[in-house]
Amino acid sequence: MAFLGILCLILVTTLLAGHFSRKLGIPAVIGQLLVGIVLGPAMLNWLQPGTFMHDFSEIGVILLMFMAGLESDIGLLKRYLRPGVLVAVVGVIFPMTLVTLASFLFDFTPLLAIFMGVIFTATSVSISVEVLRELKLLDSKEGTTILAAAVVDDVLSVVILSILVSVTGEATGGHTPSLAVSFIEQILYFVGIYFVVKWIAPFLMRLSERFLLGASVTIVSLVICLGMAYLADFIGLSAVVGSFFAGIAVGQTPYRAEVDHNVEPIGYAVFIPVFFVSIGLEMSFKGIGDALWFIVLMTVLAVLTKLVGGGIGAEMAGFDFNSSYTVGAGMVSRGEMALIIAQIGYQAKLIHPEYYSAIIIVIVLTTLLAPFLLKHAAARQLKQHQAEQTIK
């Protein structure tokens, strides 16, 4: 029953860290990420990554993205799909090119250098979603574009990763069909999403009212969420893609407010704090001196390539500078998506073992910096809006 003590420690420390972060005027998620670094292998070593941490953090990020889907305006998502595609494509090209070229400075082989680029094409907006929720910008045009871009970005990263793993001929275990089969499965999955949103989710949510349980509506919504997340993961997409679209599907029903009201305490009281702490646990200072220049260069490139690439994509879609800056900042975070890709690459022998810890450090540092950038961008945008209102 040691996990009960671990969970208690996480909840107490993240509660305090989130509270004092808010008092200092920084996003609460930063304090929760720092808890993982302080309590984890990097410093005190009271907590270690393990099955319990992994499973709870997976549920946490799934619930976080489910709530993001619930709060998303599907009309806005359709409206900003084109900007989302532009942001995603340019935001993939920049890191793919520049990080790959920079990797040659450290004597990486062409295949390993390309995989370094793949790692940093991935965007994990779960951190950005939390900051956007905190700033009440999740349903803005910038927040909607970030969410749309993240879905496209995820698909592009998975396709590129599948090609690389197929080229190496290394099986990574689990469900690993050929590239063609995997691509067809993913196309069918996105076609299936239409049917879920249009008919399946509304039918299941209406059916939930017939069960003689007070929480039946919430339970059925979670079944839809977890089921779509599982199927997405099974065919090679990120589980968060499935949970996000599950949130959109449930959000189009009359039960949206009830589900959001009931799921939010479940997520934020238990699972989501574990997810944020788990990212901090990946940090390790072992061998940091030998790979210091690698860490510095890759961190700078990881931040700038998404910030500039995403921002250029937004400008191409007609956004002004401050809006483009906000969108670019929202795409910087790598989080669990980059960690998953790095782990797959390590198992497939696509990463130098001596650089693996350094890559994890870069991913965590980038994830820590992202909320600060996003908050700064949002503050600039707010000042611009206030100035425009004053002129009017």
Rank of each mutant, 00 (worst) to 15 (best):
F20N: 10
V362K: 04
F275S: 00
H352F: 15
V118Q: 08
M65H: 03
L350T: 06
L292Q: 15
E354Y: 10
S284D: 07
T326C: 14
T145Q: 02
I119C: 15
P371A: 04
D320G: 12
H54V: 04
M1F: 06
V181K: 13
V158C: 13
G328S: 04
V12M: 14
F52M: 06
V270R: 06
K349R: 14
V99Y: 00
Y255W: 14
V217M: 00
G335Q: 05
F285H: 10
A122T: 08
K349P: 03
W199Y: 13
L304C: 08
H261Q: 12
I235V: 14
G192F: 01
L101D: 08
V250N: 06
Q252N: 14
E258H: 08
T100L: 12
I295T: 08
F20G: 15
D320N: 15
G31A: 00
A229M: 12
V35P: 06
F271E: 05
V364F: 06
S216A: 04
A102V: 05
A215R: 15
K141T: 13
Q384Y: 02
I59H: 03
G60C: 04
L86V: 05
M298V: 14
L304Q: 06
F120W: 04
D139E: 14
I224H: 03
G91E: 05
A317H: 07
P273E: 06
R133S: 15
P95W: 03
S57L: 00
T305S: 11
T51Q: 06
T144D: 08
T218Y: 03
V38T: 14
F56S: 03
F285C: 11
L33V: 07
L374Y: 01
Y230C: 07
A302G: 05
A201D: 02
L350H: 02
T176V: 13
I235C: 00
L9I: 11
F66A: 02
L368T: 01
G227M: 02
A201K: 05
V125H: 05
L64V: 11
A229G: 11
L86I: 03
M116W: 03
Q389G: 10
A113W: 06
L33N: 00
I340F: 13
L138M: 14
L373E: 00
D154H: 06
V152M: 09
L64T: 04
I360D: 01
S124Q: 00
M116R: 05
D139C: 14
H54F: 07
L188H: 11
A246N: 08
L44D: 09
L86D: 02
V197H: 11
A42R: 01
K23S: 07
E185C: 09
I351N: 01
I160S: 12
M116Y: 07
A215F: 10
M205F: 01
F195G: 14
V12D: 15
T13N: 10
L7A: 07
R210K: 14
